[in-house]
């Protein structure tokens, strides 16, 4: 898919995703080694965006499995279409039992769910397993076969192996510790908060109307807030939101009034706002 690490950065940038060197290198390796990519990091640093950008770059179909508590085999892998099977049985009344039995467990009656869809397709596919940590531990067991051998075993049909390996991205907020077995099958990428320079470029790209000096100040203030011990530190998504807010407010420089009025955009807890106000020498709120 990619020829070099620089190729990854350049092509991701075309879609509007600015990758740090770590991200570009790891995406390149995941493609080259044919291994799934496990992406961890705080909320709002672009984990899901990465998968979307890769799909766009590769011209691939994006298959997404959103994990939640209680997601199971029939939601993730496949399900038999019971209603259709019943119809088939009642339609073929004169058939012998053996004929019917072999018939109703065929591909026609199989409802593929995301994992099976991703495995069976012939076109290039990016499989995104989002928020893996939200799923139960049992779900990880299901994923192991898919992730290591890119195949799925359906007891009635046999094993379905991928004709073309999908590019797999798993994301996690580290809400729960994922098992060693799952981690060992993946390349591990931790996306943290970007360096100042990269974040400036991101803001310039996403909010082009904002002046250079203001962009610089925004990134510096957010950087300072991240160094503080807050309940929820602002992420890249918040930086962009804030930049958009400032643009909408028509501010051309940061000053105390503007910051005080818009601090709620980047900080989501009242005690965080108070702490930040003290740190930034704003007057009492």
């Amino acid at each position: 898919m990619f020829t070099s690490v620089d190729d990854v950065s350049a092509r991701l940038a075309e879609t509007g995703y600015l990758a740090s060197p770590a991200v570009a290198t790891t995406v390149f390796l995941a493609d080259r080694l044919g291994k799934p990519l496990l992406v961890e990091g705080p909320a709002g640093v672009g984990k899901t965006e990465l998968a979307k950008a890769v799909a766009q770059v590769a011209g691939a179909r994006l298959v997404r499995l959103q994990c939640y508590e209680g997601v199971d085999e029939s939601r993730a892998l496949y399900e038999w279409n019971h209603a259709k099977q019943l119809l088939r049985i009642s339609a073929g009344r004169d058939e012998s039992w053996d004929e019917t039995r072999t018939d109703i467990f065929s591909e026609e009656f199989l409802l593929p769910r995301p994992l099976l869809t991703a495995i069976r397709g012939d076109e290039p596919t990016v499989l995104l397993i989002d928020e893996t940590d939200k799923a139960d531990v049992e779900m990880e067991g299901l994923l192991l076969e898919v992730l290591s051998d890119f195949q799925i075993t359906v007891p009635e049909l046999g094993t379905v192996a991928a004709t073309r390996r999908p590019f797999v991205v798993l994301t996690s907020n580290a809400g729960r510790e994922l098992s060693e077995a799952l981690r060992r099958r993946c390349l591990f990428l931790h996306i943290g908060f970007p360096e100042e320079e990269l974040e400036r470029r991101i803001v310039r790209l996403k909010v082009p109307g904002l002046g250079a000096a203001l962009t610089e100040s925004v990134v510096r203030v957010v950087g300072a807030l991240r160094a503080m011990d807050l309940r929820k530190v602002p992420s890249v998504a918040e930086t962009i939101d804030w930049a958009r807010t400032l643009l909408a407010l028509g501010a051309d420089t940061l000053d105390e009034t503007v910051v005080r009025d818009s601090l709620g955009v980047i900080l989501k807890h009242q005690d965080d706002i108070q702490k930040a106000a003290a740190k930034l020498d704003l007057d009492a709120l």
Binding site: V5, P21, T25, T26, L29, E180, R183, L187
Partner: peptide, 18 residues
């Protein structure tokens, strides 16, 4: 050739947590 890329590549393959 590029030491920082090598670092990230080895980290991606060898490590399991931040």
């Amino acid at each position: 050739a590029d030491r920082e890329r090598l670092r990230e590549g080895l980290a991606a393959t060898l490590l399991h947590g931040p």
